[in-house]
């Protein structure tokens, strides 16, 4: 597959392969970082640093760590969470869960004019708040299934079925031309 080939070349320090990967994922990765740190300027700096780090650590990636996107997503949110901690935002952590991702949906227009708010609202149409919370914890905060269950005071099995339902809902909201 093309993605696999690209990743192999990237791991051999092929810069043009890495540039293609950057083109494929930078918007997502920078978005995730900004969603967590909520500081667009700082988020962009961190995002560039994260891609340099991804390049430096290219030889540590293998498929046992999951999807390539999952791997770089993990590096990105770790860097973003480090930033929050270094800013001594730790004490506000609970609040941050509530308003980071969910907040962007509510106040997206005010936060950043560049954001595709309409697209976002379309994607999330019909999703309940507990879905948004769960997506935030699992995808943006890097919680494990068990940690998410504890955080939301929910049985561990429920986490799995609920995230399945939430993502399925998003997939239904996706425009037919974007679907795979």
């Amino acid at each position: 597959m093309q993605l696999d080939t690209l990743i192999l070349q990237f791991q051999k320090k092929d810069k043009s392969a890495f540039e293609k990967l950057y083109g494929m994922y930078a918007e997502n990765i920078c978005g995730v970082i900004n969603t967590i740190v909520k500081d667009p300027e700082r988020a962009q700096e961190i995002c560039q640093d994260v891609f340099v780090k991804i390049w430096d650590k290219s030889d540590t990636y293998d498929t046992s760590k999951g999807r390539f996107f999952t791997w770089i997503l993990n590096i990105a949110r770790n860097a973003a969470i480090d930033e929050l901690r270094s800013k001594a935002h730790k004490n506000k952590k609970k609040n941050l869960h509530m308003d980071s991702f969910v907040g962007i949906l509510a106040y997206g227009d005010d936060l950043n004019s560049q954001m595709d708010t309409i697209g976002l609202k379309t994607l999330l149409n019909g999703l309940k708040e507990k879905c948004l919370l769960l997506i935030d914890l699992l995808y943006y905060k890097g919680f494990t299934q068990k940690e998410a269950a504890e955080e939301l005071d929910t049985p561990i099995g429920t986490i799995k079925t609920r995230i399945r339902a939430c993502i399925s809902n998003i997939r239904k909201n996706m425009a037919p031309s974007d679907g795979n």
Binding site: G31, E45, D116, M174
Partner: peptide, 14 residues
């Protein structure tokens, strides 16, 4: 789906 969601919630690339 996650790529679409994170892209839609993004302010773009640097």
């Amino acid at each position: 789906a996650m790529l679409q969601l994170t892209a839609a919630a993004s302010a773009g690339i640097p």
